[in-house]
Structures are given as structure tokens and as C-alpha cells.
Design a protein around this nucleic acid. Structure first.
Lengths: 224, 224
DNA sequence: TCTATCATTGTAACATGTTAGTTGACAAGT
DNA sequence: ACTTGTCAACTAACATGTTACAATGATAGA
């Protein structure tokens, strides 16, 4: 029930329905979803813990601006986790898992041939999701998602540059090939290369839409 | 204010003042700390998100049991982050940072000579903390702490085996030396070796105190 | 004696009233 | 015109009443 509020608001923020800087008021949310303030409060608390909103005590809550330092950190954390995942998967991959990955690769290829960018985006997410799943660690995908939430939010704004999907596919293919060849170092390098494509494009985004970023690049001092 | 409740309860759980399986009731906590149920509820929600407690809707909340699968995952995640950190630090270390690390190393040595195990434990934590801090990523240490919370909780139960502290020091020294020599791969290997010492000892703990572990090793299906 | 059903109890989840702190505007003084 | 002090309004944080659900124990039936 409060879960529903959380998901609803989170998606609205991620979809930039609530743009950075917009101040989030509880009353309209309560009214809109037909619930009391309690579940809304809990939902906002979780969003604050994830860094999606900044809550000023006794004053107000607003959607956090993009922060290059936070995005860089998120990308770093995500890379750390994905590299560890791809290492482990390369070592432990079963034949069944290899087949599932292979099918996903062929699906990616197919979607690009059909120029279904949205579909490819999904298959892309699934590719990374499968790698994490195959580590056997259930929380891994969630943690990776959470730490790179700011990155995900920024990524949505990146226009699908023509030809970028095909490049992405090639990078995925290199990762898959190295995994199949049980070349751990090669798989890591391929993954690093792949993930390394993202930050430069986000830096361009900062140039294009500076109003979405916080001017004072002071990172959060949040403590858990 | 609710932060205070959170910290208080968290420390109580980590110190095993509330042992695994103990059911956590709000009323006594409210009474004990002289606060209302609201901040306690929020604190428990955060603890549940971190996996320290399991909350059964409309029924009760109990301190979660140790779970080898969760502990293994926590160790994996922590290793991923620490390896990434030590890589980055090895590449970017400033002379000033090297001096601070050097001082910490000498402090460790000194504490072992004085057989101050508790002090060494602190210096150990600080050593790892410094490495993370020197990456320049402020959330890193928090994330590492959070993902390996179950590991930390189990670690407290490990009796300080005689001579283990000296071994730990040697491992730290190897890490520090490799960092100083700007030997990234060497630093990673040394760190991996160091962190690899922990799991076997926790597995022994499982043999020694099986009542603290959950029998059915089904991992949490929590989603954030 | 065992099983199934029901009532009782205790708790989290939810709703709502109350408090206190921050912010921003406006006025007064420089 | 600019700074500073005061005040009003808004909001999160806190307190508390209410509800609904799960777990447990008792009781009745087989």
C-alpha cells in the first residue's frame, strides 16, 4: 500500500514527470492516490534514502537536481559491481545460462534489425540483469540499481543517437564472446569499455541542459 | 530524533543485545527512549530495508537470523567495492594520502606491540575507511558498510584468535606496499587475499553456533 | 487422540490531530 | 537603496486514536 505510493512517485521522478527542483508536497499526493499522509511519508523517506529527493526538515521536500559528482560515483559503484559480476559469471557459467545469454544476444540483434529502439533498450537492461542474476546473488541487481539511480535518471535524457544501439550491441557481443571463451580478463575489459561509453555522453548532457544540474557541486553529506 | 532511535536500535542489534530471532516490540522501545511510535516505525522501516530485521505485516517484527547466503553475498559485494576502491586509490594516490596511510600502518603496528586488540580493531576499520575515503566518493564507505552489514554482525562473534591480528597486519602491509609501489594488480591481489580470510572463519562460526543461523537457507525476496 | 474451526490477542499499518521549526516576505531603520 | 529584524504561513516531524490482519490457543467434532 505504501509500496504503491513509493513506486508511483519514484516512477514519476524517474520519468521526470517531477523535474529536478520541483518541490514535492504531500497533500496533493495523498489526494491524488486517495491515501493518508502516513504511507506517503514512508515513501518519501525511502526516496530520500536513495537520494532522489532532498528533504529540508520542517520546511519542504524537493526533487534533487542532477549532480555530476553523484552521477560519477554512481557509475563507479555500478562498474565495480558489474565487473565483479562478470568475473564470477565467466568463471561459473553453466551451459544453460550460456544459452539464455545467447538467446538474449540474438534478440538484441533482431530488435536492431527491426529498428525497435525501445525494445532494444529493454533487451539491454535484461542482458545486464541476466549477468547479475547468474551470479546467484539475489540482492546484487537491486543494489546495482539503487547505487546508480542517479545515472539511470540521467540516462533517460540521452537521446538515442543514431547508430549508438548498433555500437552497444557490438560491445555486448564482445562481452558475451569473452564470457563464452571463459576469458575473465577479456570479459572485464569488454565490460569496462562498454560502461565507459556512458559518462562522456552524460557530460555532454550537462552542457546541453545545465539547468537540470546543481550549480554548487557539493555532494550529499547524508549518513545512514 | 528518529535518527537517534535508528542508531540506538541498530547498535543494539549489531552488538547482539537483541539476538537473532528476538522479536522486536515497539511499545518497550517507545517507553525506553521516551518517544512516540512514529519515529520508531520509521527506524524499523530502515532496519528492514537493510535486512537487519524481518517484519511480518500485521503480526510482528523480529531480528533476522544469520544467513550464510546473505553473508556470502555481502562479502562478495564488499569485495567488489573494496577492490574497485583500492584500484582507484593506487592510481590516484597523493603524497599526503600516502603519509596518512603510512601513519595508520605504524599505528596498527604499535597497537599490536601493545597487544591492544580492541584498538587494533578500530585501526583496522580506519584503514579500510581511509582507502574508501581517498577515492573521493563520499557514499562509497556507507554503501560498503550497508551491503556488508550481515557480515559485520557475524564478524563481531569471531573470537580474536591468537596471532590473527598479526596476520591481519601483514596483509594490510602487503596492500599498503603495493599501493605505494603503484602496483594496481598487486594491490588488488593483496586486498583479495586479505578479504578472503574472513569467510572461512564465518563458516566455522556456523558450525559452532548453528542456532544463530536460519535453517532454511532461502534468501530474502525483498525488492526496493 | 487428532484435526479443524473459531475466538481472542497482539501487532503493524493506516488515519488524523498537534507541534515546532524554517522560510520568505514585509516593514523599519540605516 | 540596502540591510536587518519581526512575523505570518507553510510543512515536516511527532503524537495518538483506529483498523485490519496474522498467529496462537482453546474448544468442539471426528
Amino acid at each position: 500500500m505504501s509500496q504503491r505510493v513509493y513506486i508511483s512517485v519514484k516512477e514519476a521522478i524517474l520519468a521526470l514527470h517531477f523535474p529536478p527542483g520541483a518541490n514535492l508536497r504531500k497533500a496533493p499526493i495523498c489526494e491524488r492516490l486517495g491515501v493518508s499522509r502516513a504511507p506517503v511519508t514512508e515513501a518519501i523517506a525511502r526516496l530520500a534514502a536513495e537520494g532522489l529527493v532532498d528533504v529540508v526538515p520542517q520546511s519542504g521536500t524537493h526533487v534533487s537536481y542532477f549532480s555530476m559528482s553523484e552521477i560519477r560515483e554512481g557509475a563507479f559503484l555500478r562498474e565495480a559491481l558489474e565487473l565483479a559480476a562478470v568475473s564470477k559469471v565467466t568463471r561459473d557459467l553453466t551451459e544453460e545460462q550460456r544459452k539464455i545469454l545467447s538467446r538474449n544476444m540474438r534478440l538484441q540483434k533482431l530488435l536492431i534489425e527491426d529498428e525497435d529502439i525501445s525494445g532494444f533498450y529493454q533487451a539491454d537492461e535484461e542482458f545486464h540483469g541476466l549477468l547479475m542474476e547468474f551470479t546467484g546473488f539475489r540482492r546484487l541487481a537491486d543494489v546495482a540499481q539503487t547505487v546508480s539511480l542517479q545515472v539511470s535518471r540521467a540516462r533517460i535524457l540521452l537521446l538515442p543517437a543514431p547508430g549508438r544501439a548498433a555500437e552497444t550491441l557490438a560491445e555486448h557481443q564482445a562481452i558475451f564472446d569473452a564470457i563464452s571463451a571463459q576469458d575473465e580478463q577479456g570479459a572485464r575489459d569488454a565490460m569496462r569499455l562498454h560502461l565507459g561509453q556512458l559518462m562522456p555522453r552524460i557530460e555532454q548532457l550537462e552542457q546541453r541542459k545545465p539547468h537540470l544540474f546543481n550549480l554548487t557541486p557539493q555532494p550529499n553529506s547524508e549518513a545512514g
